[in-house]
Design a protein around this nucleic acid. Structure first.
Length: 963
RNA sequence: GCCCAGAUGGUGGAAUUGGUAGACACGAGGGACUUAAAAUCCCUUGGCCAGUGAUGGCCGUACGGGUUCGAUUCCCGUUCCGGGCACCA
């Protein structure tokens, strides 16, 4: 009896042995080179894992195991992003404490993960919701609070330095409240009165990346803009460093591009615009006559006339085409600028703008706006242009005010057309009769249209005519700077991150309010643990859920958390009721894995120095503008502090694709309980119904299982084709409601973890999204059986012999080593597995039993299928674990061909194949090809024009008819 | 609208980056073994045409052009699908 491949027994055995032997325990070892592999840790949801989740873990595990076999000391940890909304919402619904459900989910995840045979060092597991972990989240927050960003040094510095500076400059107020307010403008973690994305459905604010098209990512509730006092992180301070860092890391171009868009650097010019209004310009002469001592209302006008505002533009070259200015409705200037005559119209407009939700504004781009009554003076032309207020200008970007150049900006163009404002073309050949010319290419004209149309400054007038747009921008910048009309300014779209949430299930802020001044709980007293509450909903007075906590006040004298009733505002103060957002805990977890049990520091200097940063990070691309920005920001801050040793946290990033579901359908004839097979369905009026993919094999329905699936179908009847019921299919998101969820446990049960690992990788490139189709899995399972069979005789004895391997076998082996090594390096696991299949087939055909060849195979397959690798390794009588073996080196000498079969081409078309000596020179190849008998018929009556011969590639002879 | 990435058999996908397109796997068809099933093994499988046959010919990598002895690969244009950003001045 041949020895059977009993994967269940093998996998259970090795899972047990790995645990017993601590095979995957990692310690810092300065004598070995480190390699840090990391997966984005999962949020443990109640639904458990489906086959899509482990894809990235398998891909990184393969790389981790490969690196280990190469002799690296590999850190490959795993943990849980355990704070989050679903657990809290579940708690609200059921009253179950989120910790309870979260921990239960974690246990379930762990159980599922363990079945797949990962090389995680579980001793390093972290959970973001445990006090020993969020201790360091709170600590980092306090460090940010006590730091500011030094623009000159482009790095974070202790806030004390800033205080010193203020003192030296005499700007340090004596009042404590004023001191606090002043510093809030600089702290990296600060309380800010900002417009936030308020989500009434969730009862909390959301970060920009948590809102898509005006609704929340989680739950899809509408989101509105609201002004609130919130904790914020000054992420924008790091804009330039976040941008520059992208050039130093090995990430996909598309994700870097996404981040560049998100950071949105634009280099432009700020120009100061003087304001005049109708009244002032009419009355200026009169006022001068009267001696400027008019009544208070005219005084106010005079103040207005000396007021100026600043606009931001990236198209400084178009200053000669400005025909109006526009302010954002939320701009503080609106109030100052509006004239009494226009007051009513402006108020009405502001009211209209307020009534519109963010979503409406985003979708509906109809032109709206109102004239403020005031005018601005274009400093370059001296022209007086009306100032409008319109919602198409955003308060949050630039200065909230723009100069409008309708000829060369489509939005300004639409506005000008709507309000009948002039349009002045500035680019040679640009036709602006139908639409604006927005391109940044061409030669500038009309700038100025006549010499006197350009205002003189210090004897100089700006003239851009004849320049290219790029030159004109540079020239205008120079002019504006030289004459003090404004300054060159870089703007970023990246906003500061709103860092507080009105939720229960998150990290509490280590902050209390002393006479309204936010004060940090001393570092030595951290962590401040999340208090118990009875209800997870906001309080009746609208406070966040932590308002329900009874013991949630800070006793300054005794340095501990005490009962709220003790608050006396002398020594006992209320603690912050907000909690931190989801990204707080996930921003520095990779550092914690380096030293997870340290209770003195986030990470020891020794561990951080050894592990440096993550060499390979694997996770979904959906985190491009969330986690992957926050984490880089957080790390850069910790780098400035000297805690992190690298400016960038993740050197190489691989984004695994999503696994979609492949749903199956049955077709019910309307108003019957009869189902018709796919090929016949067009003959009836049918309703397609999702059917559980687990009772369908190769699109053939298991009719008995279907009848048992739901009582409704117990009496179903079927119209079959060829005696089978064929189901339809479609690619959809993998979800319970589509009955297309495939569970990894089931696959492991049926085929084994090694087959699952192999198949997940065989499905296609790791980066690519693809549907899961269990149909193909047999191929991978068969391969493992064939590999297994190679090691055993018919009688179930070990087949290995000590004889010298054949040249063929050595060639097969070394070809395989070469291919697999190159493919793993390139993350091309699917082709790697194909190479294995070819090699095993070849070795089987060669009846290879050589120990020398056989003992290399377990090492090569170990990254992909570790269980079978261990079993074979042991069967061969090798010492220890295959994990401690050395990755083999391929040798060219076994691959050398004595002859090479190449296509011989005449005029670019392959005419015949022939063998050439492997070491033939191009000249010899041409000689051999032209003298071959097959060549004669092509050469007849022809003349050789050109010959091309590339050893190993091609032989090509170009002919033309003889003259 | 702007930016990025794609499009190859019935299906998932290969192709040493300009050198015999379709590796490997699934599915399908045929065959062997078997009382039968499972399992295993062998053959065929991009399309069209000719031939009893070994075989030969033509077409073929979304579409239309171009460069080249030679293009799935490089260039230009078009269509379609996916991802990101989006009144960002």
């Amino acid at each position: 009896m041949a020895k059977e491949y009993n994967f269940r027994e093998i996998e259970q055995k090795w899972h047990r042995l790995w645990t017993q032997r601590h095979t995957y325990k990692v310690t810092e070892d300065v004598n070995r080179k480190k390699f840090y592999v990391l997966n984005m840790f999962p949020y443990p949801s109640g639904a458990g894992l489906h086959v899509g989740h482990p894809l990235g873990y398998i891909a990184s595990d393969i790389y981790a195991r490969y690196k280990r076999l190469q002799g690296f000391n590999v850190l490959n940890p795993m943990g849980y992003d355990a704070y989050g909304l679903p657990a809290e919402q579940y708690a609200i619904k059921t009253g179950q404490h989120p910790e309870k459900t979260t921990f239960a989910n974690i246990d379930r995840y762990r159980e599922q993960l363990d079945k797949i045979g990962f090389s995680f060092d579980w001793d390093r597991e972290v959970r973001t919701c445990t006090p020993d972990y969020y201790h360091w989240t709170q600590w980092a927050f306090q460090k940010m609070f006590n730091s500011y960003f030094n623009e000159e040094l482009q790095k974070a510095q202790p806030i004390e330095r800033l205080i010193e500076k203020f003192k030296q400059e005499g700007r340090w107020p004596s009042d404590e409240k004023a001191q606090s307010d002043l510093l809030m403008n600089y702290r990296l973690a600060f309380l800010g009165e900002t417009m936030v994305n308020w989500c009434p459905g969730l009862g909390t604010v959301l970060a920009n990346d948590e809102v898509v098209e005006g609704v929340s990512v989680r739950g899809g509730y509408p989101v509105e803009q609201k002004k609130m006092r919130q904790w914020c992180l000054r992420v924008s301070a790091y804009s330039q460093r976040l941008l520059d860092g992208l050039d130093t890391i090995d990430w996909s171009e598309s994700i870097k591009e996404t981040q560049r868009n998100w950071i949105g650097r634009s280099e432009g010019t700020e120009v100061k615009i003087k304001i005049v209004d109708e009244l002032t310009s009419k009355q200026v002469d009169k006022l001068v006559d009267e001696g400027a001592n008019g009544n208070s209302s005219t005084n106010k006008q005079l103040v207005n006339s000396s007021t100026e505002f600043t606009i931001f533009t990236t198209r400084a070259d178009t200053m000669f085409g400005v025909t109006f200015f526009v302010l954002a409705p939320e701009s503080e200037l609106v109030d100052k600028v509006t004239t009494p005559e226009q007051r009513a119209a402006v108020d009405e407009y502001l009211h209209y703008v307020k009534s519109r939700t963010e979503r409406e504004r985003m979708i509906d781009h109809t032109v709206t706006g109102v004239f403020s009554g005031a005018y601005g003076i274009n400093p370059i032309t001296g022209d007086k242009c009306p100032i409008y207020i319109a919602e198409y200008v955003l308060a949050g970007y630039g200065t909230g005010a723009i100069m409008a150049v309708p000829a060369h900006d489509s939005r300004d163009y639409a506005f000008a057309r709507h309000f009948g404002l002039p349009i002045i073309p500035l680019v040679e050949g640009a036709d602006v009769s139908e639409e604006s010319y927005d391109a940044k290419e061409g030669i500038v004209i009309n700038s100025p249209s006549a010499p006197e149309k350009s205002v003189e400054y210090d004897g100089e007038r700006l003239c851009l005519n004849g320049l290219t747009i790029k030159e004109a921008i540079a020239e205008t910048k120079r002019f504006v700077k030289a004459h003090g009309l404004g300054r060159v300014k870089v703007n970023y779209r990246l906003r500061d991150a709103i860092f507080s949430r009105q939720r229960y299930w998150g990290e509490p802020f280590p902050v209390y309010y002393k006479q309204g001044i936010p004060t940090m709980i001393p570092e030595e007293c951290l962590p401040i643990e999340l208090p118990q509450v009875e209800k997870f909903l906001p309080t009746e007075t609208g406070e966040p859920p932590l308002g329900n906590a009874k013991v949630w006040a800070w006793d300054e004298k005794n340095r501990r958390v005490v009962d709220c009733s003790l608050v006396d505002n002398k020594t006992v103060f209320p603690i912050e009721l907000y909690t931190m957002p989801g990204f707080a805990g996930s921003s520095a977890y990779y550092l914690r894995y380096m030293d997870p049990h340290n209770d003195k520091a986030l990470v020891s200097d020794r561990a951080a120095s050894y592990w440096q940063n993550v060499d390979l990070y694997v996770g979904g691309s959906e985190h491009a503008t969330g986690h992957l920005i926050y984490s880089r920001f957080w790390n850069k801050f910790l780098f400035d502090l000297g805690v992190s040793k690298k400016d960038e946290p993740f050197q190489k990033l691989v984004n695994q694709g999503m696994i979609q579901g492949r749903s199956n359908f049955v077709y019910r004839i309307k108003e019957t309980n009869t189902f018709v097979s796919l090929g016949l369905k067009d003959q009836y009026d049918v309703t397609p119904i999702h059917v559980d993919v687990n009772i369908v094999k190769n699109d053939v329905l298991d009719i008995e299982a279907f009848k048992a699936w739901s009582p409704e179908y117990a009496t179903a009847e079927f119209v079959l084709e060829d005696g089978k019921y064929i189901c339809g299919w479609a690619i959809e998101k993998m979800s319970k409601s589509m009955y297309n969820v495939v569970n990894p446990d089931m696959i492991v049960e049926k085929f084994g973890a090694d087959t699952l690992r192999l198949y997940e990788m065989f499905l296609g490139p790791v980066e690519q999204s693809k549907p899961w189709d269990t149909n193909g899995i047999d191929g991978c399972h068969r391969f493992l059986k064939k590999l297994w069979a190679l090691f055993w005789t018919k009688d179930g004895e070990l087949a290995a012999t000590d004889g010298e391997p054949s040249a063929d076998s050595l060639k097969t082996l070394h070809k395989l080593i070469k291919k697999v090594t190159a493919d793993i390096e390139a993350f091309s696991y699917n082709t790697s597995i194909s190479a294995f299949m070819v090699a095993v087939n070849e070795l089987t055909q060669q009846r290879c039993t050589s120990r020398q060849v056989l003992q290399t195979l377990p090492v090569l397959i170990a990254p992909f299928a570790p269980h079978i690798a261990e079993e074979l390794w042991e069967a061969l009588g090798q010492e220890g674990s295959v994990c401690d073996a050395r990755w083999p080196q391929w040798e060219e000498k076994y691959l050398v061909e004595t002859s090479v079969k190449l296509g011989v081409q005449f005029n670019g078309k392959v005419r015949f194949d022939m063998f050439f000596p492997a070491d033939a020179t191009p000249e010899q190849m041409i000689e051999l090809a032209t003298s071959a008998p097959e060549a004669a018929k092509y050469l007849e009556g022809m003349q050789v024009v050109k010959t091309i011969a590339i050893p190993g590639r091609i032989v090509n002879i170009v002919l033309k008819p003889q003259a």
